[in-house]
Computed example of a mutant assay.
Amino acid sequence: MIKETGRVIALETDGLWVETIQRSACHSCALQKGCGQGVLARFAGKPAAIRVLPGDCDIRNLHPDDQVVIGIPEDVLVRGTLLIYLLPLVLLVAGAALAASVSSSDIMVACGAALGLFGGGLIARLHSMVNKNNSRVQPILLEQLSHS
């Protein structure tokens, strides 16, 4: 289980919204300011809000600004990462290869690659919409750390 600390920002009857405290590895990395990850983190500038299911915890004692620990299974994170990053890349290469086998035009190969990339992104988006309410892939509340 991968765990993350966050702050409750809203409560619902069947779950809660948690603002995660994003930690960057930039301070310990040898590249320091030469990496795009740190630049993107500074550019975004705001924490992410995540809808969390209560799991086995009682959310009736929670209030906004309470600190909590949320978790998600490792395999869900790995499969999601592969779906989001690897599938569009594989379909990009497959689209380019298929277009190259049909035509030797660079424009056609580029269009085939773009269609493959778009198709991979579309499949990932559809998967996300289908599994939106699947409790197996949603983060769950593990424990409450503090009251506000």
Rank of each mutant, 00 (worst) to 15 (best):
K132N: 10
A41M: 12
L122S: 11
N131H: 12
S105E: 02
S28H: 11
E143A: 15
P64L: 07
H127F: 03
H63Q: 15
A96R: 03
N131W: 04
R136N: 11
G112H: 01
G45A: 04
D66M: 08
S28A: 15
E74A: 14
G121P: 05
L117A: 15
A97T: 14
G6A: 11
S103E: 01
I123M: 06
H147T: 14
V109P: 01
A44F: 01
Q144V: 14
Q138T: 08
L142V: 12
C111Q: 00
S128E: 05
Q138V: 05
P139K: 01
T20Q: 02
V130T: 12
Q67C: 03
L11I: 15
V102L: 10
I123L: 11
I70C: 11
V68Y: 04
I50T: 15
D106N: 09
A124H: 04
C29L: 04
A124L: 07
L83I: 13
I70D: 00
R125N: 12
E12N: 12
V69S: 07
N134A: 06
L62W: 02
G119H: 00
R125S: 06
D65H: 11
D66G: 07
E19G: 15
A94C: 13
C29A: 10
S24L: 00
L89T: 06
D66T: 14
A30I: 08
L122Q: 05
R125W: 09
P54M: 06
S146P: 08
S105P: 04
L77C: 13
G55Q: 07
L89S: 15
K132T: 14
L122C: 08
Q37D: 00
A94L: 15
W17E: 03
R136D: 05
L142P: 01
A124C: 07
V93D: 03
A49I: 13
V78A: 14
F43H: 13
V102C: 02
L82S: 10
H27D: 08
E19I: 04
V90A: 13
A10D: 06
G95N: 01
G121D: 01
V90W: 06
V39R: 02
C29G: 12
S103G: 05
V130I: 10
G121L: 11
Q22W: 08
L145D: 05
A114L: 12
Q144G: 06
V109L: 07
L115T: 06
N133D: 13
I2F: 02
I123H: 10
G95H: 02
L40Y: 01
L126I: 09
L142D: 01
D66H: 08
P54N: 10
A114T: 08
P47V: 03
P88A: 05
A96L: 09
T13D: 13
G112F: 01
R60N: 07
D66Q: 04
K46W: 02
V52M: 02
L89Y: 04
L141Y: 01
R79E: 11
H27R: 14
I107Y: 02
V93W: 06
Y85M: 09
D66Y: 03
G112V: 03
D14Q: 09
A94I: 12
A25L: 10
A10M: 08
A10R: 07
I140H: 07
P88Q: 08
D65V: 10
V102N: 01
V68A: 04
K46A: 14
S28I: 13
G116V: 03
V68F: 00
T20P: 02
W17G: 12
G6I: 05
S146M: 00
L53T: 13
L16H: 03
R23T: 09
K46G: 05
